[in-house]
Design a protein around this nucleic acid. Structure first.
Length: 684
DNA sequence: GAGCACTGC
């Protein structure tokens, strides 16, 4: 039999690639234990690595418009720099953008603490969706989307004297839009300062992007790079000597090897998806059981961690393991940036990640498993060095590692661009090809976004935003197909119902799925009670109405296997959207007669996503003749297949699956989207 | 019979 057990080797020169010093409590995104809690705030602040650079940073900000700040996690950049600027009596507001809500909120709280003031009331505030400060704090933490929205009202961001963009290396859609716009604003407002905080590797490109040395007389650089040390313990890196045939098995073996070597410390395993995580957990539990019986060893506590894991189960990974027990967390990429688990000393990295890619030919998103980038590998490794020196076991060879791309492709080059293009146009950039994309997306993607926006009547033939439709659509933080449906709902006398449906589509499923016991069947039966043959969207409408009729009771949710928290969020989102519709004078009315008006209204925006049942028994898109399958979660899956459907999204995993389906009449496509569908299409 | 991770009103 082949020996599947990975044999790890240590590369020649790396003792540690992370610098040696103490860990510190602050990190942007999360809550972790502050071991210096007993020290005074001032002492704590001065212990931060960035403190030594305080004056230099202030000096560079005086001399340069853009400061590219390269700093590892925990150096304190996102909490300290705004405070240094305040202490130096910097005028105006300082805005700090974070990719995640929790980061914006927790940073604001932390800084308010340090400044001895109240968050949202004094000098420090935050603004995230549903929760914004109404005063003008000196330091304002916010999500990237909020700043973009502020730009729509105030294109030169006149309230701000400085903007700091954090975690830029993650390169979200918003990061790239903001960077393109900031470049433009910086040219117009010479006194404005921009701090771009990023992990290593991409600093030079960022500097080149923002450098504006051609326009000033002395050809002086307007952008400058500075690095700040992080606070990490050293992490030893090990690679496998030979490629492993199966990284799930290899990760299990690696955990058991660490465990039997009796080195202390918890283990974090990176795999790519839920299925892999569950399989590894199962295998580990089987082995752990055998081990315990064979030898009276320290126990293994094996825990899964992934995004769709119920909240209660997610919380388990944050609890310290009981005495005499080693915690092993098997996680997807959530553990790379979004959550920090304390006590990790060993990291096992499979070297792969699942990523969404937009396919221009099929107009679909594919979820593909790809090798991670070098910066991602470093990020994962860094998770081992937070409490003491750690070890990372990479389940790939050193040669494989050498070939990894430097950084992950930005979301902008691998996304459906209808939403970003609409946003950029709403910010006054008509010629999208002239927009300063930090990484230009494929022209085909841009083209197909423009086609859809034109078909939705958001832009005219010249590519200019239509008034009022295009402008109104851009105000919604929604897929333009959905904002179109919302704005059309008044004409179909069903805005009440459409508001509910679109809001329901904004949350992860509202149905809870028990994983064990008789409740699996019970949950299915309860779900069946909401189901209607018109499809998933009308089913969601029933669920929401039932919830409202129960006076939003938690008991009702429990009885019907519905997620109470999600439904409460739907209520919030719905209220928001309703307010916006009222602003645009869309009448809030209900269609009591039948679901036909609702489904027609859905066609008004979702018409590009139409499919028909081919005589082969498989669905095909009208646009492009792509074969599609009904997702097993859909109510359509269990009933006789209807002839015509529209879908909300396609996921490309093992097959192309349509999700969130609605049964329609093909005549409606001709009636409501004659510019998109010709009669001939239907007669082949 | 299938499920990377975020965010914006």
């Amino acid at each position: 039999m082949t020996d599947f057990k990975p044999r790890f080797v240590k590369p020649a020169d790396t003792n540690s690639y992370l610098d040696k010093s103490e860990s510190y409590a602050i990190e942007t995104s999360d809550f972790i234990y502050n071991k210096h809690i007993s020290q005074s705030i001032q002492t704590q602040r001065q212990r931060l690595p960035i403190f030594n650079n305080r004056n230099h940073i202030l000096y560079l900000l005086e001399k340069h418009q853009t400061l590219i700040l390269v700093g590892e996690t925990g150096c304190g950049k996102s909490t300290q720099i705004p405070q240094y600027m305040i202490e130096a009596e910097w005028p105006g507001q300082i805005g700090v953008c974070e990719p995640r809500r929790v980061a914006a909120i927790s940073l604001a709280n932390r800084v308010a603490d340090e400044m001895g003031c109240l968050v949202q009331q004094d000098a420090v505030g935050y603004a995230v969706r549903f929760d914004a400060c109404h005063n003008k704090p000196k330091i304002k933490y916010m999500t990237e989307g909020i700043l973009l929205r502020e730009m729509m009202a105030d294109p030169l961001l006149k309230n701000y004297s400085a903007i700091m963009m954090d975690e830029v290396h993650e390169r979200s859609l918003y990061t790239d839009i903001l960077m393109g716009l900031m470049k433009k604003i910086l040219r117009k407002r010479k006194e404005l300062r921009l701090i771009v905080a990023s992990a290593t590797l991409d600093a030079k490109e960022l500097k080149d992007f923002f450098n504006n040395n051609q326009t000033n007389e002395k050809k002086k650089d307007t952008a400058v790079i500075m690095s700040v040390e992080g606070r990490q313990y050293p992490v030893d890196i090990f690679y496998v000597a030979e490629p492993v045939p199966c990284y799930i098995q290899a990760s299990v073996d690696a955990v058991l090897k660490i465990h039997s070597s009796k080195q202390p410390g918890d283990v974090l395993v990176f795999l790519t998806g839920q299925e892999e995580v569950e399989r590894a957990v199962r295998l580990l539990n089987e082995h752990a059981h055998l081990l315990e019986e064979a030898q009276k060893k320290e126990k293994l506590l094996v825990l899964p961690m992934y995004g769709s894991l119920p909240y209660h189960d997610q919380m388990k990974v944050f609890k310290p393991a009981p005495n005499g027990c080693r915690k092993v967390v098997v996680a997807t990429n959530v553990a790379e940036t979004s959550v920090t688990i304390s006590g990790i000393v060993h990291v096992i990295d499979c070297g792969f990640v699942k990523m969404k890619w937009y396919n221009t030919e099929t107009h679909t998103d594919s979820l593909v498993t790809l090798p991670i980038s070098k910066s991602s590998a470093d990020q994962r490794a860094g998770r081992a060095g937070r409490v003491r020196s750690g070890k990372v076991y990479r389940l790939y060879t050193e040669e494989f590692a050498a070939k990894l791309a430097l950084s992950t492709p930005p979301e902008m080059v691998r996304s459906n661009l209808t939403f970003p293009v609409l946003q950029i146009k709403a910010l006054g950039i008509n010629n999208i090809l002239k927009f300063n994309f930090p990484s230009p997306p494929p022209v085909q993607n841009l083209k197909s976004a423009l086609e859809i926006l034109y078909a939705l009547d958001a832009i005219d033939i010249q590519g200019e935003l239509t008034a009022p439709m295009g402008f109104h659509m851009a105000e919604f933080a929604l897929d333009p197909l959905y904002s179109k449906v919302l704005l059309a709902s008044g004409d179909f006398d069903c805005s009440e119902e459409i508001l509910t449906i679109i809001s329901m589509l904004q949350v992860e499923t509202v149905f809870t799925k028990p994983s064990t016991g008789a409740s699996i069947i019970k949950a299915k039966i309860q779900k069946r009670l909401f189901e209607v043959e018109e499809g998933d969207l009308i089913t969601y409408l029933n669920v929401f109405n039932g919830f409202v009729q129960s006076e939003m009771s938690q008991g009702y949710c429990h009885k019907n296997f519905l997620n109470y928290k999600s439904l409460k969020r739907v209520v919030e989102i719905r209220n928001r959207l309703e307010k916006m519709l009222k602003n645009y004078d869309v009448p809030i009315v209900s269609s009591i007669r039948s679901t036909e008006a609702i489904r027609k209204c859905l066609v008004k925006g979702l018409f590009p996503n139409a499919a028909y049942l081919h005589h082969s028994g498989v669905y095909k898109t009208i646009r492009g003749d792509i074969e599609l399958y009904v997702h097993p979660d859909s109510v359509i899956y269990t009933i006789p297949q209807p002839q015509w459907v529209i879908f909300c999204e396609v996921v490309h995993t093992t097959k192309l699956f349509m999700r969130d389906l609605t049964v329609i009449d093909n005549e409606w496509l001709l009636e409501l989207a004659p510019h998109f569908y010709y009669k001939t299409t239907f007669h082949e």
